[in-house]
Design a protein around this nucleic acid. Structure first.
Length: 922
RNA sequence: GCCCGGGUGGUGGAAUUGGUAGACACGUUGGACUUAAAAUCCAAUGAACAUUGCGUUCGUACGGGUUCAAGUCCCGUCCCGGGUACCA
């Protein structure tokens, strides 16, 4: 009997005792880094969905090890975060304790599945030994600015040196908008406080008063990627805009590099597309329109400066500061009413009314920078304040929204496109020729853009401009369970703690915000901070993504107490070669860690600027919920196939009470007290049939499958094999326990093939036959190709086919079984180790090597396709010299129809010549 | 609206470059073994028609097209999933 429980226990102990999966830097071996997105250790443990990616990465890691690579394959926990803090608020249990308990449980669950992690490299982001270095990286960000010329982060000391010499007139660095311009002598005269304030405007980690996404219910601010449609991603609570002093990271400085870097990444097109959209780069021009009679300028951003002669009006966003300034007296009332109306509308309402056209005329006019014509200035809510300049030049002929606005308010539309009809709609195509445009006439769009920008620049009323959608990342959270900032305040200005030791989270009595609305850390008394300095400490903590933005580096050198990572080690391991995880982090973690990696690269701390070379996003495993039908106002349940005759209520039923969609009535009665008296209307087979539906797994739907139960029932190897067999790794798919017996049988069959009736290992020592070798080598090739293209599901089928053939031919020859066992081992490490030992090996199977394909046995794969059909009625097919008679017959069959068509008859003759070219003479 | 995926039996899915569609597995049905059940093994299983065996026709969301040959390529339509949005 295949006793998986015994086998798995034995080998898990063996691996632990022998530290089988421990890895060291080894310059003689080529490295390979396989990484999983580390989990957040929640209180509910792992479900079958979590290990899907871990199993795939483990298979790949084991495969690479067998191929002779030195494989880094670590695991850890992203252990700072909200749920643990909420749990602490509710129970008073310190988050560190809850985290400890949860990670312990995760570890037990993970160990049962038999992963090849080097657990000596485990990290936890909430461990002071770890977040010491998260704080250290924050300090590096604080001490850096972004030089536009070199497109690189540089040390802030270079900046002060520059200010002393020449002020900031000529400086080309990224800074906050409100930064004043000053000369060297002015800089010298500034007070220390003023100097610090100015420097803060340049730092990559900076403090500023900004509009942030405030979530009242969560009591904290959220980053843009944590907000969806005006609601928090976690918990779906309403989010509002609030002006607050917050730490931000200047990710916008890296926008271009983050965009460019995508080109070299082997990621899915969809994730790259999401990042591209998120960064949202638009190239165009900023153009100044002067407002007549008001001595003010309106700056607009446009991607189509070539349509400047088609401008019929300007539109300001209702929030635009000039709205009130330039409105003429007679329009003041209307404008005020309109702006007030817009203010009242929530973000959501404004979005849902997208198609409704609203606006109001200011009564003022601007001067066209080229034609000097009078252009009316409107206010409209289809222009948003937080993109571009918050004002647009409206070109009805070239933009549908402008067209609609013009149509609605009966504004004239100039057509600047040759041979285009704009009476029904605008033309948004840029593959056109310009007309009615003075010096731009007869130019193409791209030519006109160049020309008009040159003209505008000369006049001083416009220049080339690039706009991004991405905003700087808010880095403060008003929480407790996160990294404290290594920052204190003096005169309300932030300063870094000087030494490089960790600033630990102080103990506090309660994890709630204070009554005055300050973050929980404000509760910490002076003496509870181990390194209190200045007037007060920073009360905010860092967001969840701080620790996860660089964790892949720490695995290389997890114990290092003097550096965040040793240089030689990072030079050896370099980038993550294969990263597996969910696609939900597309604009969060995956963008931030790219940003941090680029920054650390700029500082010369690591030798690469993209963290994850290849990424695979595993699809979610959905649950298969079962339902029972309860009669209305009665405790009677009716079988699904009979329910149409009754009025029923559909209820979720725990999937553990159901087998093959049939309800176990005994278990059901015990499930809940009120069920004990339940009565049933059964179907014709005297069974109770449940209906089912595919949904997300959740506690409330009673459809969670835990790996633990399955491991107990079928073994870890079956679970691993089955999760892979389920379908392509990237696809969303429902979990269906019914199919698990198929892969379980496969393992049982394998066991039976090499054991006799008395469960003794029995294997034939006679050399394998040629067709047996053909079978195994075809399998080796296919398995290897499939693993290399991450097609983990087809590997399982291939192995099943191979085994079926081995059983059919009663082939259990030593060489064949050895190769087969190695092929199987990444998927089923436990049973493979067991068989490996029985084959007489002392070392772990991971120390062996992946079998080499002998192409001698692979004939039919070498067949190539037609090379010629010449006029002499001879149809030639090139066939490998190793093709068998059988193969050639197959080819002939394949082409017979073709030849029949060409000739009207079957081929007269088939000639097979010695070099195996088949000639059909027709 | 725009961008990116996808649509194949009762189910999950295979078909990697255009070359025998439905591999592999689940489920179902029938059979063997058994007092019986479980387990195991064998057979059938896209649909329709024909069944004495051979077989015939249709079939990869729908409608066209290219090709000797289309699930695969091209055009149009519908549906599903994901992203994104008055982004100027």
């Amino acid at each position: 009997m295949y006793n998986f429980n015994k086998i798995e226990k034995k080998w898990q102990e063996f691996w632990r005792k022998n530290k089988t999966y421990k890895v060291f830097e080894d310059s003689k071996k080529e490295k390979f880094y396989v990484l999983d997105m580390f989990p957040y250790p929640s209180g509910s443990g792992l479900s079958v969905g979590h290990p899907l990616g871990y199993i795939a990465s483990d298979i790949y890691a084991r495969y690479k090890t067998l191929k002779g690579f030195n494989v880094l394959h670590p695991m850890g926990y992203d252990s700072f975060g909200l749920p643990t803090e909420h749990y602490a608020i509710q129970t008073g249990i310190h988050p560190a304790i809850a985290t400890f308990e949860n990670t312990k449980r995760y570890r037990i669950q993970l160990d049962k599945i038999g992963f090849s992690y080097d657990w000596d490299r485990e990290i936890q982001t909430s461990d002071p030994k770890y977040y010491k270095w998260t704080q250290w990286i924050f300090k590096q960000l604080f001490n850096s600015f972004f030089c536009k010329k070199t497109q690189k982060a540089r040390d802030i000391s270079e900046l002060t040196a520059y200010f002393i010499k020449q002020g900031n007139h000529t400086l080309d660095a990224v800074c906050s908008e409100e930064t004043p311009i000053f000369s060297a002598s002015e800089w010298q005269k500034y007070s220390e406080v003023d100097k610090q304030k100015i420097l803060l405007n340049y730092r990559l980690a900076f403090l500023s008063e900004t509009w942030v996404n405030w979530c009242e219910k969560l009591g904290t601010v959220l980053a843009n990627d944590e907000v969806k449609d005006g609601f928090s991603e976690r918990g779906s609570y309403p989010v509002e805009q609030k002006l607050m002093q917050q730490w931000s990271l200047r990710i916008t400085a890296y926008a271009d590099r983050l965009l460019d870097g995508l080109k070299v990444l082997d990621w899915s097109t969809s994730i790259k597309e999401i990042q591209r959209n998120w960064i949202g780069k638009s190239v165009g021009a900023n153009i100044l329109f002067s407002v007549l009679k008001y001595n003010k300028n309106i700056k607009v951003f446009t991607t189509r400066p070539d349509t400047i002669f088609g401008v019929n009006f300007l539109v300001l966003a209702p929030e635009h500061p000039l709205c009130n300034v330039i409105t003429i007296k007679s329009q003041k009332k209307d404008v005020k009413q309109y702006i007030d109306e817009i203010k009242l509308k929530s973000e959501k309402e404004r979005k849902s009314e997208v198609k409704k056209i609203t606006g109001v005329f200011t009564g003022s006019y601007a001067e066209h920078p080229i034609t000097s014509k009078k252009i009316p200035i409107w206010i409209g809510d289809y222009v948003v304040s937080n993109y571009g300049t918050g004002a647009i030049m409206a070109v009805p002929c070239g933009d549908q929204r402008d067209w609609n606005f013009a149509q609605h308010f009966n504004i004239k539309k100039i057509n600047v496109f040759k041979d285009v009809d704009i009476s029904e709609s605008a033309n948004e195509n840029d593959d056109i020729v310009i007309q009615n445009s003075d010096f731009l006439n007869n130019l193409s769009s791209s030519e006109a853009i160049e020309k008009v920008i040159a003209v505008l620049k000369e006049k001083g009323s416009g220049e080339r401009a690039v706009t991004y959608r991405i905003r700087d990342a808010v880095f403060s959270r008003q929480r407790y369970w996160g990294e404290p900032f290594p920052v204190y305040y003096k005169n309300e200005l932030p300063y870094l703690l000087e030494d490089n030791e960790v600033l630990e989270l102080p103990e506090i009595s309660e994890y709630l915000p204070t009554s005055s609305g300050e973050p929980p850390l404000a509760r910490a008394k002076r003496e509870q901070w181990k390194k209190f300095q200045g007037d007060r400490m920073e009360f905010n903590v860092m967001p969840g993504w701080a620790g996860s933005s660089w964790y892949f580096l720490r695995y290389m050198d997890p114990q290092n107490d003097v550096e965040f990572v040793n240089k030689q080690k990072v030079n050896y391991w370099k980038q993550v070669d294969l990263y597996i995880g969910g696609a939900e982090h597309a604009v969060g973690h995956l963008l931030y860690s790219r940003f941090w990696t680029k920054f650390l690269f700029d500082k010369g701390l690591i030798p690469f600027e993209e963290p994850f070379k290849k990424m695979i996003n595993q699809g979610m495993i959905l649950g298969r919920s079962n339902f029972v039908y309860k009669l209305k106002e009665s405790n009677t349940f009716v079988s699904f196939d009979k329910k149409d005759k009754y009025e029923t209520i559909r209820l979720h039923v725990d999937i553990n009470l159901v087998e093959n969609d049939f309800l176990n009535i005994e278990k059901f009665k015990k499930w809940r007290p009120e069920n004990s008296s339940a009565r049933f209307i059964l179907n014709n087979d005297n069974k109770y049939l449940c209906s089912y539906e595919i949904e997300k797994m959740s506690k409330s739907k009673y459809n969670i499958h835990t790996p633990d139960i399955l491991v107990e029932k079928f073994g870890a190897d079956t679970l691993r094999l089955y999760e892979m067999f389920l379908g392509p790794i990237e696809q969303f798919k429902p979990w269906d326990s019914q199919g698990i017996s198929g892969v379980h049988n496969f393992l049982k069959k394998f066991w039976k093939l090499i054991h006799n009736d008395k469960n003794e290992f029995f294997i034939s020592e006679s050399p394998p036959q040629k067709n047996e070798l053909k079978n195994i080598h075809k399998t080796i090739k296919k398995v290897e190709e499939d693993i290399q293209r991450y097609s983990f599901n087809t590997v399982v089928s291939t192995l099943m086919i191979c085994l079926n053939q081995l059983i059919e031919k009663k082939c259990n020859k030593r060489d064949i079984i050895t190769d087969f066992t190695i092929l199987l081992s990444p998927y089923t490490p436990h049973i493979a180790e067991e068989v490996w030992q029985k084959l007489g090996h002392k070392e772990s199977i991971t120390k062996s090597s992946f079998p080499k394909v002998n192409t001698k046995y692979l004939i039919d794969k070498n067949i190539t396709y037609p090379v010629s059909f010449n006029g002499k009625k001879r149809f030639t097919i090139d066939v490998s010299s190793e093709a068998s008679k059988e193969d050639i017959e197959n080819i002939i069959m394949q082409y017979e129809k073709t030849i029949q068509y060409l000739n009207g008859n079957s081929p007269k003759k088939v000639i097979i010549v010695p070099n195996k070219i088949i000639n059909f003479v027709v």
